[in-house]
Amino acid sequence: MKKILVTGSRGQIGSELVRKLRETYGASNIIATDIRKMDDDHKEGPFEVVDVTDSDRLFTVAKEHNVDTIMHLAALLSATAEAMPKVAWDLNMGGLINALEVARELDLQFFTPSSIGAFGPSTPKDNTPQDTLQRPTTMYGVNKVAGELLCDYYYSRYGVDTRGVRYPGLISHVTPPGGGTTDYAVEIYYEAVKNKAYTSYIGEGTSMDMMYMPDALNAIIQLMEADPGKLEHRNAFNISAIAAAPEDFGKAIQKYIPEFKLSYEVDPIRQTIAESWPNSIDSSAAAKEWGFKVEYDLDKMTKEMLDRLTEKNK
Protein backbone atom coordinates (compact mmCIF):
# COMPACT_ATOMS: atom_id res chain seq x y z
CA MET A 1 0.00 0.00 0.00
CA LYS A 2 1.32 3.43 -0.98
CA LYS A 3 -1.72 5.63 -1.57
CA ILE A 4 -5.02 4.80 0.10
CA LEU A 5 -8.58 6.09 -0.34
CA VAL A 6 -10.80 5.68 2.73
CA THR A 7 -14.58 5.89 2.40
CA GLY A 8 -16.70 6.68 5.45
CA SER A 9 -13.73 8.48 6.95
CA ARG A 10 -15.81 10.36 9.53
CA GLY A 11 -17.40 7.23 10.95
CA GLN A 12 -16.53 5.15 14.01
CA ILE A 13 -13.60 3.32 12.42
CA GLY A 14 -12.71 5.74 9.66
CA SER A 15 -12.06 8.79 11.83
CA GLU A 16 -9.36 6.94 13.74
CA LEU A 17 -8.09 4.82 10.84
CA VAL A 18 -7.28 7.91 8.78
CA ARG A 19 -5.06 9.24 11.58
CA LYS A 20 -3.33 5.87 11.97
CA LEU A 21 -2.73 5.50 8.24
CA ARG A 22 -1.37 9.04 7.94
CA GLU A 23 1.04 8.37 10.78
CA THR A 24 2.13 5.15 9.08
CA TYR A 25 2.20 6.06 5.36
CA GLY A 26 2.32 9.88 5.33
CA ALA A 27 -0.52 12.39 5.45
CA SER A 28 -0.48 13.19 1.73
CA ASN A 29 -0.89 9.52 0.81
CA ILE A 30 -4.23 9.04 2.59
CA ILE A 31 -7.30 10.43 0.82
CA ALA A 32 -10.14 10.67 3.33
CA THR A 33 -13.65 10.73 1.87
CA ASP A 34 -17.11 10.99 3.38
CA ILE A 35 -20.59 12.15 2.46
CA ARG A 36 -20.21 14.82 5.16
CA LYS A 37 -17.88 17.77 4.61
CA MET A 38 -14.40 17.97 6.11
CA ASP A 39 -13.91 18.82 9.77
CA ASP A 40 -10.81 19.74 11.75
CA ASP A 41 -9.85 16.07 12.15
CA HIS A 42 -9.07 15.78 8.44
CA LYS A 43 -7.28 19.07 7.75
CA GLU A 44 -3.84 17.45 7.95
CA GLY A 45 -4.32 15.64 4.61
CA PRO A 46 -6.43 15.34 1.44
CA PHE A 47 -10.21 15.15 1.85
CA GLU A 48 -12.97 14.72 -0.74
CA VAL A 49 -16.75 14.72 -0.37
CA VAL A 50 -17.92 11.39 -1.81
CA ASP A 51 -21.31 9.66 -1.67
CA VAL A 52 -20.43 5.99 -2.21
CA THR A 53 -23.77 5.40 -3.95
CA ASP A 54 -22.46 7.73 -6.69
CA SER A 55 -20.18 5.35 -8.61
CA ASP A 56 -18.93 7.98 -11.06
CA ARG A 57 -17.81 10.32 -8.28
CA LEU A 58 -16.05 7.49 -6.43
CA PHE A 59 -14.22 6.40 -9.59
CA THR A 60 -13.19 9.97 -10.45
CA VAL A 61 -11.72 10.67 -7.01
CA ALA A 62 -9.82 7.37 -6.91
CA LYS A 63 -8.39 7.95 -10.40
CA GLU A 64 -7.50 11.61 -9.84
CA HIS A 65 -5.55 10.77 -6.70
CA ASN A 66 -3.89 7.75 -8.32
CA VAL A 67 -4.60 5.50 -5.32
CA ASP A 68 -3.55 1.86 -5.16
CA THR A 69 -5.86 0.81 -2.31
CA ILE A 70 -9.46 1.39 -1.24
CA MET A 71 -10.53 0.89 2.37
CA HIS A 72 -14.31 0.91 2.18
CA LEU A 73 -15.93 1.72 5.52
CA ALA A 74 -19.09 3.65 4.59
CA ALA A 75 -22.10 1.81 6.05
CA LEU A 76 -25.08 1.95 8.38
CA LEU A 77 -24.50 -0.04 11.58
CA SER A 78 -26.70 -2.73 13.09
CA ALA A 79 -29.34 -0.94 15.16
CA THR A 80 -29.66 1.92 12.67
CA ALA A 81 -29.89 -0.53 9.76
CA GLU A 82 -32.68 -2.42 11.50
CA ALA A 83 -34.65 0.81 11.84
CA MET A 84 -34.15 1.63 8.13
CA PRO A 85 -33.64 -1.69 6.32
CA LYS A 86 -34.21 -0.43 2.75
CA VAL A 87 -31.87 2.52 3.28
CA ALA A 88 -29.30 0.15 4.79
CA TRP A 89 -29.46 -2.19 1.80
CA ASP A 90 -29.08 0.65 -0.69
CA LEU A 91 -26.11 2.16 1.14
CA ASN A 92 -24.36 -0.94 2.42
CA MET A 93 -24.67 -3.07 -0.71
CA GLY A 94 -24.85 -0.34 -3.34
CA GLY A 95 -21.81 1.41 -1.90
CA LEU A 96 -19.87 -1.85 -1.62
CA ILE A 97 -20.38 -2.96 -5.22
CA ASN A 98 -19.51 0.54 -6.44
CA ALA A 99 -16.25 0.45 -4.48
CA LEU A 100 -15.47 -3.07 -5.73
CA GLU A 101 -16.07 -1.95 -9.30
CA VAL A 102 -13.62 0.92 -8.86
CA ALA A 103 -11.07 -1.54 -7.45
CA ARG A 104 -11.63 -3.84 -10.42
CA GLU A 105 -11.39 -1.09 -13.05
CA LEU A 106 -8.28 0.53 -11.53
CA ASP A 107 -6.63 -2.69 -10.28
CA LEU A 108 -6.61 -1.64 -6.63
CA GLN A 109 -6.13 -3.55 -3.39
CA PHE A 110 -9.39 -3.58 -1.42
CA PHE A 111 -10.43 -3.81 2.24
CA THR A 112 -13.87 -3.77 3.80
CA PRO A 113 -14.92 -4.94 7.26
CA SER A 114 -17.55 -7.54 7.99
CA SER A 115 -18.92 -8.14 11.49
CA ILE A 116 -20.03 -10.69 14.04
CA GLY A 117 -23.44 -9.51 12.84
CA ALA A 118 -22.92 -11.88 9.90
CA PHE A 119 -23.70 -14.73 12.29
CA GLY A 120 -27.18 -15.71 13.46
CA PRO A 121 -29.09 -17.74 16.05
CA SER A 122 -28.17 -21.06 14.40
CA THR A 123 -24.43 -20.29 14.43
CA PRO A 124 -22.43 -22.11 17.14
CA LYS A 125 -22.39 -19.68 20.08
CA ASP A 126 -19.09 -20.50 21.74
CA ASN A 127 -15.69 -20.42 20.03
CA THR A 128 -17.52 -19.77 16.75
CA PRO A 129 -15.45 -21.27 13.90
CA GLN A 130 -14.02 -19.31 10.99
CA ASP A 131 -16.13 -21.33 8.54
CA THR A 132 -19.59 -22.05 9.90
CA LEU A 133 -23.33 -21.66 9.35
CA GLN A 134 -24.36 -18.03 8.76
CA ARG A 135 -28.09 -17.27 8.84
CA PRO A 136 -28.42 -13.75 10.32
CA THR A 137 -31.85 -12.38 11.22
CA THR A 138 -31.08 -8.66 10.77
CA MET A 139 -30.72 -6.52 7.66
CA TYR A 140 -27.21 -5.55 8.81
CA GLY A 141 -26.30 -9.23 9.08
CA VAL A 142 -27.77 -9.99 5.66
CA ASN A 143 -25.71 -7.11 4.23
CA LYS A 144 -22.55 -8.43 5.83
CA VAL A 145 -22.97 -12.02 4.61
CA ALA A 146 -23.77 -10.78 1.10
CA GLY A 147 -20.75 -8.48 1.30
CA GLU A 148 -18.43 -11.30 2.32
CA LEU A 149 -19.62 -13.38 -0.64
CA LEU A 150 -19.38 -10.42 -3.02
CA CYS A 151 -15.77 -9.76 -2.03
CA ASP A 152 -14.96 -13.45 -2.51
CA TYR A 153 -16.60 -13.26 -5.94
CA TYR A 154 -14.58 -10.23 -7.04
CA TYR A 155 -11.40 -12.05 -6.02
CA SER A 156 -12.24 -15.34 -7.74
CA ARG A 157 -13.93 -13.82 -10.81
CA TYR A 158 -11.80 -10.73 -11.46
CA GLY A 159 -8.66 -11.22 -9.36
CA VAL A 160 -9.30 -8.16 -7.18
CA ASP A 161 -7.08 -8.36 -4.08
CA THR A 162 -9.95 -8.22 -1.60
CA ARG A 163 -9.33 -8.64 2.13
CA GLY A 164 -11.45 -8.20 5.25
CA VAL A 165 -12.13 -9.06 8.87
CA ARG A 166 -15.24 -9.78 10.93
CA TYR A 167 -15.12 -7.13 13.61
CA PRO A 168 -16.59 -7.64 17.06
CA GLY A 169 -17.96 -4.65 18.98
CA LEU A 170 -15.41 -1.82 18.85
CA ILE A 171 -14.62 0.39 21.84
CA SER A 172 -13.04 3.84 21.55
CA HIS A 173 -12.49 6.97 23.63
CA VAL A 174 -12.20 9.08 20.46
CA THR A 175 -15.37 8.48 18.47
CA PRO A 176 -18.88 8.58 19.99
CA PRO A 177 -21.16 5.55 19.51
CA GLY A 178 -22.67 5.29 16.03
CA GLY A 179 -25.80 3.14 16.14
CA GLY A 180 -24.39 -0.32 16.84
CA THR A 181 -25.78 -2.99 19.13
CA THR A 182 -22.51 -3.18 21.06
CA ASP A 183 -22.37 0.59 21.68
CA TYR A 184 -23.28 0.04 25.34
CA ALA A 185 -19.69 -1.07 25.84
CA VAL A 186 -18.56 2.42 24.78
CA GLU A 187 -21.31 4.34 26.57
CA ILE A 188 -20.61 2.58 29.87
CA TYR A 189 -17.15 4.19 30.09
CA TYR A 190 -18.41 7.68 29.21
CA GLU A 191 -21.13 7.41 31.85
CA ALA A 192 -18.78 5.90 34.43
CA VAL A 193 -16.53 8.95 34.19
CA LYS A 194 -19.35 11.48 33.98
CA ASN A 195 -22.01 10.08 36.34
CA LYS A 196 -20.48 7.04 38.13
CA ALA A 197 -23.49 5.03 36.89
CA TYR A 198 -24.84 3.44 33.72
CA THR A 199 -28.14 1.85 32.67
CA SER A 200 -27.44 -0.88 30.12
CA TYR A 201 -29.86 -1.58 27.28
CA ILE A 202 -28.25 -5.05 26.94
CA GLY A 203 -29.26 -7.56 29.59
CA GLU A 204 -27.10 -9.11 32.27
CA GLY A 205 -25.32 -12.28 31.16
CA THR A 206 -25.39 -11.36 27.46
CA SER A 207 -21.82 -12.02 26.34
CA MET A 208 -20.47 -10.60 23.07
CA ASP A 209 -17.04 -10.18 21.53
CA MET A 210 -15.34 -6.80 21.80
CA MET A 211 -12.09 -5.14 20.77
CA TYR A 212 -10.30 -1.91 21.64
CA MET A 213 -9.90 0.38 18.65
CA PRO A 214 -6.07 0.43 18.55
CA ASP A 215 -6.10 -3.35 18.09
CA ALA A 216 -8.81 -3.04 15.43
CA LEU A 217 -6.75 -0.53 13.43
CA ASN A 218 -3.55 -2.55 13.71
CA ALA A 219 -5.43 -5.59 12.41
CA ILE A 220 -6.29 -3.77 9.17
CA ILE A 221 -2.67 -2.86 8.52
CA GLN A 222 -1.43 -6.33 9.48
CA LEU A 223 -3.86 -7.98 7.07
CA MET A 224 -3.30 -5.57 4.19
CA GLU A 225 0.48 -5.93 4.48
CA ALA A 226 0.31 -9.73 4.72
CA ASP A 227 1.81 -12.03 2.08
CA PRO A 228 -1.13 -12.97 -0.19
CA GLY A 229 0.38 -16.40 -0.72
CA LYS A 230 -0.28 -17.24 2.93
CA LEU A 231 -3.96 -16.29 2.87
CA GLU A 232 -6.08 -19.41 2.68
CA HIS A 233 -9.05 -17.19 3.42
CA ARG A 234 -9.19 -13.63 2.11
CA ASN A 235 -12.28 -12.00 3.47
CA ALA A 236 -14.19 -12.14 6.73
CA PHE A 237 -11.44 -13.33 9.05
CA ASN A 238 -12.76 -13.84 12.58
CA ILE A 239 -10.93 -11.52 14.97
CA SER A 240 -11.62 -10.72 18.61
CA ALA A 241 -9.94 -9.72 21.85
CA ILE A 242 -12.52 -9.77 24.66
CA ALA A 243 -15.67 -11.81 25.26
CA ALA A 244 -17.70 -10.01 27.92
CA ALA A 245 -21.19 -9.27 29.24
CA PRO A 246 -22.29 -5.90 30.71
CA GLU A 247 -21.51 -7.02 34.28
CA ASP A 248 -17.94 -7.86 33.23
CA PHE A 249 -17.44 -4.27 32.12
CA GLY A 250 -19.05 -3.11 35.35
CA LYS A 251 -16.65 -5.13 37.50
CA ALA A 252 -13.65 -3.95 35.48
CA ILE A 253 -14.72 -0.31 35.95
CA GLN A 254 -15.29 -0.79 39.70
CA LYS A 255 -11.59 -1.64 40.12
CA TYR A 256 -10.88 2.00 39.29
CA ILE A 257 -14.20 3.65 40.24
CA PRO A 258 -15.47 1.61 43.24
CA GLU A 259 -18.68 3.63 43.54
CA PHE A 260 -19.76 2.86 39.95
CA LYS A 261 -23.29 1.42 39.71
CA LEU A 262 -24.63 -0.66 36.83
CA SER A 263 -28.36 -1.12 36.24
CA TYR A 264 -30.45 -2.48 33.37
CA GLU A 265 -33.29 -1.29 31.17
CA VAL A 266 -33.28 -3.74 28.30
CA ASP A 267 -34.07 -2.57 24.75
CA PRO A 268 -35.95 -5.51 23.16
CA ILE A 269 -34.71 -4.82 19.63
CA ARG A 270 -31.02 -4.55 20.48
CA GLN A 271 -31.28 -7.40 22.98
CA THR A 272 -32.73 -9.67 20.29
CA ILE A 273 -29.89 -8.71 17.94
CA ALA A 274 -27.29 -9.36 20.65
CA GLU A 275 -28.74 -12.77 21.48
CA SER A 276 -28.45 -13.80 17.82
CA TRP A 277 -24.68 -13.23 17.86
CA PRO A 278 -21.91 -15.47 19.25
CA ASN A 279 -20.72 -15.40 22.85
CA SER A 280 -17.12 -15.78 21.68
CA ILE A 281 -15.39 -16.45 18.36
CA ASP A 282 -12.32 -18.38 17.22
CA SER A 283 -9.62 -16.10 15.74
CA SER A 284 -7.08 -18.87 15.06
CA ALA A 285 -7.29 -18.64 11.25
CA ALA A 286 -6.30 -14.96 11.35
CA ALA A 287 -3.45 -15.75 13.74
CA LYS A 288 -2.19 -18.56 11.52
CA GLU A 289 -2.52 -16.86 8.14
CA TRP A 290 -1.36 -13.30 8.85
CA GLY A 291 -0.17 -13.13 12.45
CA PHE A 292 -3.18 -11.50 14.07
CA LYS A 293 -2.68 -10.66 17.74
CA VAL A 294 -3.97 -8.09 20.20
CA GLU A 295 -2.39 -5.93 22.88
CA TYR A 296 -5.41 -5.07 25.04
CA ASP A 297 -7.45 -7.29 27.35
CA LEU A 298 -10.48 -6.04 29.31
CA ASP A 299 -8.53 -4.65 32.26
CA LYS A 300 -5.84 -2.88 30.20
CA MET A 301 -8.49 -1.38 27.92
CA THR A 302 -10.62 -0.27 30.88
CA LYS A 303 -7.75 1.55 32.55
CA GLU A 304 -6.84 3.38 29.35
CA MET A 305 -10.45 4.24 28.50
CA LEU A 306 -11.07 5.71 31.96
CA ASP A 307 -7.77 7.62 31.95
CA ARG A 308 -8.39 9.12 28.50
CA LEU A 309 -12.01 10.04 29.16
CA THR A 310 -11.15 11.57 32.53
CA GLU A 311 -8.51 13.71 30.84
CA LYS A 312 -10.95 14.68 28.08
CA ASN A 313 -13.57 15.78 30.63
CA LYS A 314 -11.24 18.05 32.61
Rank of each mutant, 00 (worst) to 15 (best):
G11Y: 05
L17N: 03
K20A: 00
R22W: 10
S28Q: 15
A32Q: 11
A32C: 11
T33L: 11
D41K: 10
E48A: 12
D56V: 11
V61I: 06
H65N: 14
T69W: 02
A74I: 05
A75E: 15
T80K: 07
L91S: 09
L91F: 09
I97W: 06
N98G: 13
E101G: 12
V102T: 14
V102I: 10
A103Y: 01
R104P: 10
Q109M: 11
F111E: 00
S114C: 09
S115W: 02
G120I: 09
P121T: 06
T123Y: 06
P124E: 03
P129M: 12
T138P: 03
L149F: 00
S156P: 03
R157S: 15
G159C: 05
G159W: 04
G159T: 02
D161V: 07
V174Q: 14
G178W: 02
T181C: 13
D183L: 08
V193D: 07
A197M: 01
E204G: 06
T206S: 00
M208E: 09
D209C: 11
Y212L: 02
P214F: 10
M224Q: 02
K230A: 06
E232W: 04
A241T: 11
I242K: 11
I242Q: 14
P258M: 08
P258F: 09
E259I: 03
I273P: 08
A274N: 05
W277I: 03
P278A: 11
P278I: 07
P278N: 12
S284V: 04
A285T: 11
A286V: 01
A287T: 13
A287D: 15
K288I: 02
K293P: 07
E295W: 00
L298K: 01
K300H: 05
M305I: 04
M305W: 01
D307H: 05
L309S: 11
